[in-house]
């Protein structure tokens, strides 16, 4: 009796799982391949210090639109997604072609900042005594030096 109840419960559970009213969808291999390609290009650009926020947003929008489409009809969604991804991939190829100069500028800027920061102790060692001497002279430039005792011995 218990076994029967258990079997009925199990059957009811699996039936119920099948009845959940949500539409799962899976990317086709072609769409997944292009999506991986696009993501790989975005990551390559990112490693070259190019701002990829626009490309990330475009890929995210394409993925979200695909999901909306797949939930509604699910027929031509893959083709639409592939079309958008191919257009994005072409844009990324152009960006990759021009990304090396961006990377060199980034490296040059880093080196310049590093050199400037590294020169702080040397600059301090060389310039600080001079600056203090200069400031000392400037602040005391109008001072009148009098002999000890002031005007006491002035005979005019």
């Amino acid at each position: 009796m218990r076994v029967n109840i258990l079997l009925v419960a199990l059957a009811a559970f699996f039936l119920a799982s099948a009845l959940l009213v949500v539409h799962p969808h899976a990317l086709s291999n072609e769409a997944l391949g292009i999506m991986s390609d696009v993501l790989g290009k975005i990551q390559l650009l990112e490693s070259r210090k190019v701002n990829v926020s626009d490309y990330v947003r475009m890929l995210d929008e394409a993925a979200r639109e695909y999901q909306v489409c797949a939930r509604s009809d699910g027929q031509s969604c893959d083709e639409e997604l592939i079309g958008k991804l191919q257009a994005l991939s072409e844009e990324l190829d152009k960006a990759i072609a021009g990304s090396e100069s961006t990377y060199y500028v980034y490296v040059a800027r880093k080196v310049a900042v590093g050199a400037a920061l590294a020169s702080i102790p040397i600059a301090t060692y060389v310039l600080l005594p001079w600056l203090i001497s200069y400031a000392w002279l400037r602040t005391k430039a109008k001072w009148v030096v009098l002999p000890r005792g002031g005007r006491k011995n002035d005979n005019r």
Binding site: V22, A26, V52, S53, D60, A63
Partner: peptide, 10 residues
């Protein structure tokens, strides 16, 4: 899965 959600994040 009953559903899958895709998201791209920087």
């Amino acid at each position: 899965p009953v559903d899958t959600l895709l998201v791209v994040l920087s």
